[in-house]
């Protein structure tokens, strides 16, 4: 099995519902985003169009972050998910620098001390979610591994109102993701880096 995602840029409306769903699912501190939607202009003046490009960890098959990690904290599972073991991470940020997509986040000292509303007071939600993170370590999108292990789609996929994100098994030629990539000419971001991302984009 090789889990991956297809993102249909024609469908994305830039509503950032995926961004919010991700934050809600993972309970990340302020300023920490595992996914977001970037604005990008397509075409050239005067014929231009604004497009939206959702970005997240690409769970690369030949992930530079796995290679450069000196502790083995970043690993790749058999199903292709690239995960970080926070207990092993020393916070050297070699993975952060090596990621061509800049999709990793470093949790600075104090990042878990203040919630969204400041004043050293945290909401019950933040109190429940923050213990899974560790300050001084690198964090990133896990494709919502806890949900995936239960057979569910990642939170961003489930939330997307435009059905722009599709999750599935890339190794199965009959899966929806494989068919979309085949039929619509799906492409990986920055293929020149030879990282074999598990996220494909459709235009």
């Amino acid at each position: 099995m090789h889990l991956g995602m297809v993102i249909d840029l024609k469908r994305c409306v830039g509503c950032q519902a995926c961004t919010i769903a991700c934050k809600s699912e993972n309970g990340t501190p302020p300023g920490v985003l595992f996914t977001k939607v970037l604005d990008q202009v397509a075409g050239e003046y005067p014929i231009v169009k604004k497009k939206f490009v959702p970005v997240l960890c690409n769970h690369c098959q030949d992930a530079p972050c796995v290679r450069v990690c000196p502790t083995g904290a970043t690993t790749k599972r058999e199903d292709g998910l690239v995960l970080v073991d926070h207990d092993k991470c020393v916070g050297c940020r070699a993975c952060y620098v090596a990621c061509p997509y800049k999709n990793r986040v470093f949790l600075k000292k104090g990042a878990l001390k203040t919630g969204y509303f400041g004043g050293n007071q945290m909401t019950p939600f933040e109190k429940a979610k923050y213990p899974k993170w560790q300050e001084g370590t690198v964090v990133k999108c896990t494709f919502c591994v806890e949900r995936v292990d239960q057979g569910l789609d990642p939170s961003c996929v489930q939330t997307c109102p435009a059905d722009a994100r599709i999750f599935g098994d890339l190794s199965d030629p009959n899966s929806k993701v494989s068919r979309l990539i085949r039929q619509r000419g799906g492409y990986q971001p920055q293929p020149e880096n030879n990282t074999e991302p598990s996220v494909y984009y459709l235009e």
Partner: peptide, 19 residues
């Protein structure tokens, strides 16, 4: 280092990591 107390762990993977 974000977690300097774990510095020794950075010796773990010389096979692939230049750090």
């Amino acid at each position: 280092l974000g977690r300097p107390e774990r510095f020794w762990r950075a010796l773990t993977k010389p096979g692939t990591s230049w750090v």
